[in-house]
Deep mutational scan, measured.
Amino acid sequence: TFELKGKVGKVVKIAEDHYLVEVEGDKWIAYSDEKLSLGDRVMVVDVDGLKLKVKRIP
């Protein structure tokens, strides 16, 4: 999972307290300090167990 840091993915689902992002064909639970929208491109900035911390990228 640490090899996911720096990888780019996209938001595929928005849940009440987390996001579902697809990175390299796999779906992961993710969270972010900013509000994300469906389809946003994101970069993995940290890995916390099986959850990814992501940030939006242009």
Rank of each mutant, 00 (worst) to 15 (best):
T1A: 15
T1F: 15
T1S: 15
T1K: 15
T1I: 15
T1E: 15
T1Q: 15
F2Q: 15
F2A: 15
F2G: 15
F2T: 15
F2V: 15
F2H: 15
F2I: 15
F2L: 15
E3C: 04
E3Y: 04
E3L: 03
E3S: 01
L4D: 06
L4N: 01
L4K: 03
L4T: 03
L4S: 02
L4I: 07
L4F: 01
K5Q: 13
K5D: 14
K5R: 04
K5S: 05
K5Y: 15
G6E: 02
G6R: 00
G6S: 01
G6L: 01
G6I: 00
G6A: 01
G6M: 01
G6T: 01
K7G: 02
K7C: 04
K7Q: 05
K7S: 05
K7E: 04
K7T: 02
K7M: 05
V8Q: 14
V8P: 10
V8K: 07
V8G: 04
V8Y: 04
V8C: 13
G9Q: 00
G9T: 03
G9K: 00
G9R: 00
G9M: 02
G9E: 00
G9H: 00
G9Y: 01
G9D: 00
G9S: 02
K10P: 14
K10C: 12
K10V: 11
K10T: 13
K10S: 09
K10Q: 11
K10E: 14
V11H: 00
V11I: 12
V11Y: 01
V11D: 00
V11M: 09
V11G: 00
V11R: 00
V11N: 03
V11P: 02
V11Q: 00
V12P: 00
V12Y: 14
V12L: 11
V12E: 10
K13A: 06
K13C: 07
K13I: 11
K13W: 12
K13M: 12
K13D: 06
K13S: 09
I14H: 11
I14S: 10
I14D: 04
I14T: 12
A15V: 12
A15W: 11
A15L: 13
A15C: 07
E16V: 09
E16Q: 14
E16D: 05
E16H: 11
E16F: 14
E16Y: 10
E16M: 10
E16P: 05
D17E: 10
D17C: 11
D17L: 12
D17I: 13
D17N: 12
H18A: 11
H18D: 09
H18P: 02
H18L: 09
H18M: 12
H18G: 06
Y19M: 14
Y19V: 10
Y19N: 14
Y19F: 08
Y19P: 04
L20G: 06
L20N: 10
L20Y: 07
L20K: 07
L20F: 12
L20C: 06
L20I: 07
V21C: 05
V21L: 05
V21F: 04
V21S: 03
V21R: 00
E22M: 04
E22L: 08
E22Q: 13
E22R: 06
E22H: 07
E22G: 06
V23S: 01
V23L: 04
V23T: 02
V23E: 01
V23K: 00
V23A: 03
V23R: 01
E24N: 02
E24F: 03
E24V: 04
E24M: 04
E24G: 04
E24C: 11
E24A: 04
E24L: 04
G25D: 07
G25N: 08
G25C: 08
G25H: 10
D26I: 07
D26G: 15
D26E: 09
D26F: 15
D26P: 14
D26A: 14
D26V: 08
D26T: 11
D26M: 13
D26N: 13
K27S: 09
K27L: 07
W28Y: 12
W28K: 02
W28A: 02
W28S: 02
I29A: 15
I29T: 11
I29S: 14
I29R: 15
A30V: 03
A30P: 00
A30K: 00
A30M: 08
A30F: 01
A30D: 00
Y31C: 05
Y31P: 03
Y31I: 06
Y31K: 14
Y31F: 11
Y31G: 09
S32M: 10
S32W: 06
S32N: 10
S32V: 11
S32D: 11
S32P: 05
D33G: 11
D33V: 09
D33M: 14
D33Q: 12
E34I: 07
E34T: 11
E34H: 09
E34F: 12
E34W: 12
E34V: 12
E34N: 05
K35W: 04
K35T: 06
K35P: 06
K35S: 08
K35I: 05
K35H: 05
K35A: 06
K35Y: 10
K35R: 11
K35V: 05
L36N: 03
L36T: 03
L36V: 09
L36S: 03
L36R: 02
L36C: 08
S37E: 12
S37R: 08
S37M: 08
S37L: 11
L38S: 06
L38R: 05
L38N: 08
L38E: 07
L38V: 08
L38G: 09
L38M: 07
L38I: 12
L38D: 14
G39M: 10
G39T: 10
G39Q: 12
G39L: 11
G39S: 11
G39E: 13
D40G: 09
D40L: 11
D40R: 05
D40V: 09
R41N: 08
R41Q: 14
R41K: 06
R41P: 13
R41L: 05
R41S: 13
R41D: 14
R41F: 10
R41Y: 13
V42Q: 00
V42E: 00
V42I: 13
V42M: 10
V42L: 04
V42C: 07
V42Y: 01
V42A: 13
V42F: 06
M43W: 03
M43L: 09
M43G: 03
M43Q: 07
M43R: 03
M43V: 15
M43Y: 04
M43A: 04
V44D: 00
V44F: 14
V44Q: 00
V44G: 01
V44N: 01
V44M: 02
V44H: 01
V45A: 06
V45D: 14
V45R: 03
V45N: 06
V45W: 12
D46L: 03
D46I: 02
D46A: 04
D46V: 03
D46H: 03
V47F: 14
V47Q: 07
V47I: 06
V47Y: 05
V47A: 04
V47N: 02
D48P: 02
D48R: 07
D48Q: 07
D48I: 11
G49M: 14
G49D: 05
G49K: 10
G49P: 10
G49W: 11
G49R: 05
L50A: 06
L50N: 06
L50M: 13
L50R: 06
L50P: 04
L50F: 15
L50T: 12
L50G: 11
L50I: 09
K51E: 04
K51C: 06
K51D: 05
K51G: 10
K51S: 08
K51W: 07
K51M: 12
L52D: 00
L52R: 01
L52G: 01
L52N: 01
L52W: 01
L52E: 00
L52A: 02
L52Y: 02
K53L: 13
K53R: 13
K53D: 06
K53N: 11
K53P: 00
K53Y: 15
V54C: 04
V54G: 01
V54H: 00
V54N: 00
V54T: 04
V54Y: 00
V54I: 09
K55H: 11
K55L: 15
K55P: 00
K55Y: 12
K55R: 12
R56H: 05
R56T: 07
R56Q: 05
R56W: 08
R56E: 07
I57P: 08
I57S: 09
I57M: 13
I57K: 06
I57V: 06
I57Q: 12
I57F: 06
P58L: 06
P58G: 14
P58M: 08
P58W: 06
P58C: 07
P58Y: 11
